[in-house]
Simulated scan of single mutants.
Amino acid sequence: MQLIDRRRDRFEMFDRMDSPALNLTFNLDLPDFRPWCKAQGLAPFHVLLCAVLRATLAVENFRYRILDGEVLRIDRLMPSFTVINQHNDLNFAQFEWSDDLREFVARGLAARAAASAMVELNLAYQAMTPRQARDQVFITCIPWLDFTSIQHPTATLGAPDIPSIAWGKFRDAPNGRLQLPFSVQAHHGFVDGFHIHQLAQHIAAELTAFMQA
């Protein structure tokens, strides 16, 4: 674990704090991939979800978690995201990863349909072991709002080791671009503002690669 060994002093400093969470909300600038999604018959949210999760694996600092006081590095992700049901109540959707974009989107759509049809809270995540739970990034989308900040919930204030990511309403931008409010919460012992900048760059690159494939 070369990275965590190099950052050990930073990690120990932030991990001693009551809340070691780093929170940033910013305008994410992306190529406008919506026309491409329409032409391909793909749901834009799920295409962006795939790009975001691929990007979190591409930026090494987002791969680290804490379990039983020890730092571990993940090598896979279990996609999960929030949905609303017929009563406009929150629920959770989960599905197995696929490297194929179309299969990824299909699995995400099926998971959304299943979770949206539930009245009760989907408790499938409770079947995950603590180690399996570390293979997540918490994703939520608030497409109705052009928000400027958000407070992500954490099960334990002092352990925000699973990153939380949220985005909001798309806005048209000049020159074939779009912008959206984007929020990232991560453990500051692993992630600095620069790494969130890298995450944003990787998301844009993933979307560009999809459209050029």
Score class of each variant (00 low, 15 high):
2 Q>M: 11
3 L>C: 01
4 I>K: 04
4 I>W: 04
6 R>D: 11
8 R>D: 02
10 R>N: 08
10 R>E: 04
11 F>N: 01
14 F>C: 06
18 D>P: 13
20 P>E: 05
20 P>M: 05
28 L>Q: 04
29 D>V: 14
31 P>Y: 05
31 P>R: 09
32 D>R: 10
32 D>E: 10
34 R>K: 13
35 P>E: 02
39 A>R: 14
40 Q>Y: 06
40 Q>K: 15
41 G>P: 06
41 G>T: 06
43 A>T: 14
44 P>R: 10
45 F>Q: 09
46 H>Y: 14
46 H>S: 08
47 V>E: 00
47 V>W: 08
49 L>I: 07
54 R>T: 02
57 L>Y: 01
58 A>T: 03
58 A>G: 05
58 A>N: 03
58 A>Y: 00
60 E>V: 00
61 N>Q: 15
61 N>I: 00
62 F>P: 03
64 Y>T: 05
66 I>G: 02
67 L>A: 05
70 E>A: 15
72 L>I: 12
73 R>H: 10
77 L>T: 01
78 M>L: 15
79 P>E: 04
86 Q>I: 09
87 H>T: 12
88 N>Y: 14
88 N>L: 14
90 L>A: 07
91 N>D: 08
92 F>A: 09
93 A>Y: 05
100 D>K: 04
101 L>W: 07
104 F>P: 02
104 F>L: 09
105 V>H: 06
107 R>P: 03
109 L>E: 15
109 L>Y: 10
109 L>M: 14
111 A>Y: 01
114 A>M: 12
116 S>V: 07
117 A>W: 13
119 V>Q: 13
124 A>T: 13
124 A>M: 11
125 Y>W: 15
131 R>C: 06
133 A>S: 14
136 Q>A: 14
136 Q>M: 15
142 I>Y: 11
144 W>T: 08
145 L>S: 12
145 L>V: 13
149 S>T: 14
149 S>P: 05
150 I>E: 04
150 I>C: 03
154 T>E: 12
154 T>P: 02
157 L>S: 11
158 G>E: 07
161 D>E: 10
161 D>N: 06
167 W>G: 02
171 R>H: 11
174 P>V: 06
176 G>Q: 10
176 G>E: 06
179 Q>M: 13
180 L>T: 11
180 L>A: 08
180 L>W: 02
181 P>S: 07
181 P>W: 02
182 F>N: 02
183 S>E: 00
186 A>E: 00
187 H>M: 03
191 V>K: 02
192 D>Q: 10
193 G>F: 10
196 I>R: 00
197 H>A: 12
201 Q>T: 13
201 Q>S: 11
202 H>K: 13
202 H>W: 09
204 A>M: 05
209 A>V: 09
209 A>H: 12
213 A>Y: 12
213 A>P: 10
